[in-house]
């Protein structure tokens, strides 16, 4: 049985001091230790952005993909290698902007993988521009001097509407609670979405206050109507497992195999 820190690769992270992603990294190692899995059993697949550097910091298999495409890569990998524990990772820009459509269809398709989005409401790697989850009146970027002036994306509500069977929100201020949430997400059969409020103290110093704003909620329903009611009145700072309703993951088992199909179409 490995200790949590033994899942780290030894590569020194280049995230800013104070970044919430360190906490997510530690939560993942703690969840792996609790799962008692060997590093070779897991694959971490990411897109582009600060958070997408995470696979390099673990000694599991990793795939640092292209912008917004963590989910299609992870889907293909899981379908080809169902024996592996596949975790897709990324940030709010990567996952909800360029990768937004993949997010919706990953929820709908329900492949057995976990998707962790480290949401700091900003494009940090490119020095602080508004992302899909940036608050409407956030004025810290010269590109949007009056704020984005559009309502932020609601990832959990969208995940529910798109058909995700496991929806949760954690906070980087509570890596132990987040580890427990990730443990449950990995155990969940099907697509599991975990949004993590992960502060960017460099470009959004106001997010230091998140630790005062985050509050635990014990919703944990398998009823989509109850989950929808909760998520539509959510202030964005509730943490917990909001919805858990397992259904058979895709691809579904069939009697006929692809080889049989080839036989049927042989000329």
């Amino acid at each position: 049985m490995l200790k949590a820190k033994q899942y780290k690769s030894g590569v020194k992270p280049i995230w800013c001091p104070g970044c919430g992603h360190y906490s997510v990294l530690n939560a993942i190692t703690k969840a792996f230790a609790a799962l008692e899995q060997s590093p070779e059993q897991a694959v971490l697949v990411s897109g582009i952005g600060c958070s997408s550097r995470l696979p390099a910091y673990l000694n599991s298999y990793g795939f640092h993909g292209v912008h917004g495409r963590a989910l299609p890569l992870a889907t293909g990998l899981k379908v080809a290698r169902p024996d592996l524990n596949v975790i897709a990772l990324g940030g709010d820009g990567d996952g909800f902007s360029i990768g937004g459509n993949h997010f919706l269809h990953a929820c709908r398709r329900n492949v057995d993988l976990v998707y962790v989005v480290m949401d700091n409401e900003v494009y940090g790697m490119t020095k602080g521009q508004a992302s899909p989850t940036t608050p409407e009146h956030w004025q810290h970027s010269k590109l949007t001097p009056h704020g984005p002036e559009v309502r932020p994306f609601q990832p959990c509500a969208l995940a529910l509407a798109a058909g995700a069977g496991f929806i949760a929100r954690g906070h980087s201020g509570d890596p132990n609670g987040l580890a427990q949430m990730l443990f449950a997400a990995v155990k969940h059969p099907g697509f599991a979405f975990v949004q993590v409020l992960s502060q960017c103290v460099t470009f959004c110093p106001e997010q230091v206050q998140w630790k005062e704003q985050v509050h635990a909620e014990s919703v944990g329903t398998d009823n989509p109507a109850e989950a929808a009611h909760f998520l539509h009145s959510d202030d964005g700072f509730a943490k917990g497992i909001f919805y858990c309703n397992p259904r058979t993951p895709w691809p579904l088992p069939h009697d006929s195999q692809a080889t049989d199909l080839r036989e049927g179409f042989r000329l």
Binding site: C16, P17, G18, G20, S172, G173, Q199, V201, P205, V208
Partner: peptide
């Protein structure tokens, strides 16, 4: 723990580059 983490671990958001 008295708080979310063990008491001798500083919170990540307490530090800055």
């Amino acid at each position: 723990w008295p708080d979310a983490e063990s008491p001798e671990s500083f919170q990540y958001s307490q530090v800055h580059y």
